[in-house]
């Protein structure tokens, strides 16, 4: 089994207009997704939904150890589609992971393999 992080990107207008029913529908979509993961012989090893990107703070370390870190308001990169959440998925191979990413309820999903550390 290999592990992948699914980074979910979407436009954020959803936050402005969503009502209770919309939130419930979204939860239902994620329940469905997680059921599909299990059905594919993969598993959900973790994941979180994130607050909208305007609540983010970005800290950039100075060029040398003495300089103070620079804190800015907002995400690392301002993009039309912002990172809105992630899953950690354990899947047998990339083909399965990509099929699951296509079923993931998000506009765009970046699939990144997790760096496996040597066993000690």
């Amino acid at each position: 089994m290999a592990r992948y992080v699914f980074l979910m990107y979407d436009t954020e207008d959803w936050h402005d207009t969503v009502d209770e029913q919309g939130v419930a529908d979204e939860f239902a979509l994620h329940e469905e997704f997680m059921a599909a993961v299990t059905a594919a012989g993969a598993s959900v090893a973790g994941g979180e939904a994130l607050e909208r990107s305007s609540t983010a703070s970005t800290v950039r370390r100075g060029p040398d150890s003495g300089s103070r870190p620079l804190v800015t308001d907002g995400p690392f990169a301002e993009t039309k589609e912002a990172l809105g959440g992630f899953y950690v998925i354990e899947a047998p191979d990339l083909d399965v992971a990509l099929r699951l990413a296509a079923a993931c309820p998000a506009g765009t999903v970046e699939v990144r393999p997790v760096m496996e550390m040597p066993e000690t």
């Binding site: 290999a2 047998p92 191979d93 990339l94 083909d95 992971a97 699939v111 393999p113």
Partner: peptide, 10 residues
Amino acid sequence: AVARVPFRVP
């Protein structure tokens, strides 16, 4: 290798 692309015929 890293992303685990399988060596198979779909």
